[in-house]
Simulated assay, not measured.
Amino acid sequence: MKAKWRRPVAFAIACSLGLAAGPGCGGTDVEHPETTPVTGTVSYKGKPLDSGTISFVSDGGHTASGAIKSDGTFGLSTFGEGDGAVLGHHRVRVVANNQPVDVMPGSSPGYKPTKDLVPKKYSDAATSGVEATVAKGQTPIEINLK
């Protein structure tokens, strides 16, 4: 291989393996939009949901998600554990059903078809009709589904 091609080829290989440190090359110096911690509660017909997943989808397309705990509380993560959501307007989706997360259809003993705990419209941010605004110093957000 000619000497003038060695360095660019080595750089391309390093990028493809994620070894080079720098923006645009799979390194850790990737710039992300600013996030802020987001916590809250989600309820359906006035009662806290005891399981499921909630996601906030920003107008810029970044999704923050978190598990709904047995008391209806949640915390969101976007780029790293517990970092919250990007600032600004979000559409919200909630997916909640009666199936434990470790049960797989067709392969787990005792599998039963799932039953949604909230109407299907809430499982898509585009149809849920639920919105939230995320700001610095965010207080807990209450999501009340009807």
Rank of each mutant, 00 (worst) to 15 (best):
A64S: 15
G72K: 03
P140V: 12
K115G: 06
N98P: 00
K146E: 15
G60A: 14
M1A: 15
V38R: 04
E31G: 02
G88R: 02
T39Y: 04
D50C: 08
P33R: 09
T41V: 14
K146H: 10
T36D: 09
H89M: 08
D71Q: 05
Y44D: 09
G52L: 03
S55K: 08
Y122P: 03
D83S: 05
S65G: 11
R91C: 03
T39F: 06
R6V: 15
G84A: 12
E81I: 13
E131N: 05
T28L: 13
G84R: 02
T114D: 03
H90P: 02
I54T: 08
C25M: 14
S58H: 08
G82Q: 05
K4A: 10
V94E: 01
G18I: 09
A21E: 12
A14Q: 08
T114I: 04
L49E: 00
S55M: 13
T78W: 06
G24A: 11
P119A: 04
P100K: 14
A135D: 06
G82N: 10
D71N: 15
N144K: 13
Y111A: 10
K146T: 15
P33T: 03
S43L: 14
D50E: 12
V86D: 00
T78L: 13
S58Y: 08
R7I: 15
P33C: 05
V92E: 00
T28W: 08
H62K: 13
V103P: 02
A132R: 06
A132Y: 02
H32V: 13
H89V: 05
G18S: 05
I141K: 00
L145K: 06
S55D: 09
A85P: 01
G129L: 06
T53M: 07
T36P: 05
T73E: 04
P33A: 11
K115N: 10
A126G: 09
M104P: 01
N97E: 07
